[in-house]
Each structure stands twice: as C-alpha cells, then as structure tokens.
Design a protein around this nucleic acid. Structure first.
Lengths: 209, 209
DNA sequence: TTTTACATACATTCGTGTATGTATGTAAAT
DNA sequence: ATTTACATACATACACGAATGTATGTAAAA
C-alpha cells in the first residue's frame, strides 16, 4: 500500500517528523539511526531520504514546524507592550511556561533540545542559525523593560538588557531543570511565585543610601 | 615506549581523561569514538579499555575527577551558614560562577554536560546517579534560606525550597545560556547585578495590603 | 508519458568488544 | 644476586554488526 497523492505525501512527511520527535526523545539524536525512525513511522529509509537530505535536515524541519509562543508574534503586540510593558513581559513568560506544562509535543521538542542533543559540527551550525530568532525575542523584551523604566515602573539598577538576560536565564533555568527531572519541583505551582519574587527585585524601591 | 610503573599508569589514565574532555567538547560524546580519544592521547584503544570498561565508564570517571565548589564542603560550612545565611548563599553562587569564568577545564566539562551530551540510556542512568549530589546542595541552600527567614532577613513569600529552586534556576540558566553563546552577554559584569536584583526580590518588604 | 513517492538492494565505512601478543615491573624463591 | 613466576600496562589483530548514501526498481498520480 503506497501513498501517492500530494496530501498523502505531506501526511507521510508529518508522520516521519512526529515519529522523529518520539524516537529522538527516547534514544537521543545522535544515537538514532534513520532506520529507527523509518521503522517506527511505518516507512523505509527511502521515504525519509526522499523528504529530507539527511538527519540534520530532518532535525531542522522538526524545528521549523515548532509553533512559537504567540505573544511575540501577535498582531497587537506593540500596543499591548506599550500599554503595560511589565504585564506584557510577564504574560509572555507565563505563556511559555504554560506551553511547557500543557503542550506535550511542544515540551518533548524542548526536552530534545536541552537533554537529548549534542551541538557540535552541523548541529552547532544549525543551532546558531536559529539563534537569530532568540535575538528577536531579546530585542522585544529589552524594549519592554526600557519602556517600563521610562514609565517609572521599575528601578534602574539593571539595564534593560541585563533585566532581559536575567529573566531569560531564570525562565530557561527553571524549565531546563524541570524537564531534566520533573520530580525536582512542581513547576505549575512554583513558577508563579518564583517569578513574582523575580519581578519584585525589579520594582523594589532603591535606597537613597 | 611503554609505561609500567603505577605512577606512569596513573599519568596515562589522567592524560586519557584530559584528552577525553577536549575531544568530547569538540565532537560531542556520542560522536566521539574511543579511537578518537586514543589517537589524540597518544595511546591505542587497548590502553583505554585497560583503564575503563567503555565510554560511559570513562565519562563517569571524568565526572568523578571534577572538583566541586568548595563552599559546600568547607569545614566551617555550617558555622558560616549560621552566621550569615544569605551571605553564605551568595558566596556559594559567586564561587560557582567564578569557577566557570576562571577555570577553563571546569568550564569545559560543564559545556559537555550542557551542550555536548545526550542523556539517554546508560548516560541518563549515570546522570540520575549523580543527581543525589545536587540534592545535597539543595538541602544546604534550603536550610540556609530557612534560617534567613527565622532571622527575619528575608520575607516569607517564598518557601525555603521555592527560593532554592528559583536561585538554582537563575544561576543554571545564566550559565547555561552563557556557555551556549558567550557573545550573548558578558557574564562577569552581568551576573553580580542580576543576582543583586534576584536577592532584592527576597528581601523586599511585603506590602500589608 | 512523465513525474512523483516511495521501496529495495548494494557498497562502503566505521565503531565496538574481545582475544591475543608482548614488554616490563615486582616479589618471592633459590 | 639471580632466577623464577606472575601481574601489570598496554599494543595489535580480528570478527561482527550497524549506519550511511546512493543507485535502481516500480506503481500510481498528474
């Protein structure tokens, strides 16, 4: 039973990528052969080599399919950012954490990124090429923090860029450690109050001393 | 020229492990064959299989050789912790960050842990077995935060455990992102003020409202 | 009829584990 | 002080599976 129509082919491609996420997550990217993916997807390596040049290209396609948090791409982004910069930032982080909690397939991809992948050679290049996306997020957050300072909503002990780096580090670190070992702490209940404390450090009044 | 004495053998073993760090860091753990390590260390696979059962055992030996931050193991640890809990915690984080900045071989091992290693199968088991070490650090920090609350040095909006998880997340996240891309931000100048802000969130007075 | 979307078959390379060889150290017997 | 007997510390060689990329076959779609 061979699939031929364009829709069928697209479905095959998606099934390969879905399967790749599962197998990568279970065996690691480097330890996974294209045959492993093919077998579990119910196709042969021929199908994989038809759709993708090699494993790295397949991994890249897996990334491209990722739906990024919506906050950063929403149409009314700049308006919301201007109206309540700190609220926007907090909503964006909550959205990201929420996706990690609720969207299993989203979470599984990040588990691969963080714990089941070696960034060397072509994989390192691939990551670097996707790094610009992250720089875009940094820019947006930085602008929001700058606006918050202009509005007097936060102190000036951190530059907007430092605040951005700090927040991203806090969020990434929490999610990294939680995905590494979910038994370490309950993310859903811990993240909100930890982030409350984090933002409290920004809004605390500065001693004149 | 073959080495025979015990000292020579130990030197060979160390050279293999030193080389392994370099090669793992360059090629990734999974992508590195024992032949790669042997060639660069100036021995054959025979030497490696003499000293280690396989690659995982070699990786484990690499971890065992790691000198952990001293703060947690110092003789006067509990005394310093009791005298100034928040100061102790801050000094411990500064020490860890300082080692990442100044000790290149220490940093290279963490680069492997975080970016050049897939935690699946035996490697996942190995990591889990070393996880207890981390739990010990968590216990110490948690006790320190609890003491700080008893002394009225910090507010009670976070439990000691939540504060611990938050701090570890902040530090790990900063170091993880910095080792991923050192050009992202200057760690040496950013870390102190970001941590200042973090602790400010703990010590900020709580609104009665 | 020509592509498309795969499956099948093949050649080659590479890594692992182990088995074996060997030169040297070392401790006890003589 | 030698010699003996064995352990140590590797190097060399081999057998085996496994993964990759490509070349080719093929049936249905367009």
């Amino acid at each position: 039973m061979v699939r031929r129509t364009k829709e069928d082919a697209q479905e095959t491609r998606n099934r390969i990528l879905d399967t790749a996420v599962e197998v990568f997550n279970r065996q690691g990217v480097a330890q996974t052969s294209l045959n492993d993916v093919a077998r579990e997807a119910g196709v042969t390596r021929g199908a994989i080599y038809w759709h993708f040049a090699n494993k790295v290209a397949m991994f890249d396609a897996m990334i491209e399919r990722l739906v990024c948090p919506l906050m950063f791409n929403a149409a009314d982004r700049d308006a919301r950012l201007a109206a309540d910069p700190l609220g926007f930032i907090r909503a964006a982080t909550d959205e990201f954490i929420g996706m990690m909690l609720n969207d299993a397939s989203f979470r599984r991809v990040f588990e691969i990124f963080w714990h089941k992948c070696e960034y060397v050679g072509e994989m390192a290049n691939l990551r670097d090429s996707h790094l610009e996306e992250g720089e875009n997020h940094i820019d947006i957050l930085q602008r929001a923090f700058a606006l918050a300072q202009e509005k007097g909503l936060m102190n000036r002990l951190l530059t907007p860029h430092q605040a951005t780096i700090g927040l991203i580090g806090q969020v990434d670190g929490l999610l990294f450690n939680w995905t590494k070992n979910p038994d370490m702490f309950p993310l859903a209940s811990y993240a909100p109050c930890i982030l409350d404390a984090w933002f409290r450090g920004l809004t605390a009044p500065v001693d004149a001393a």
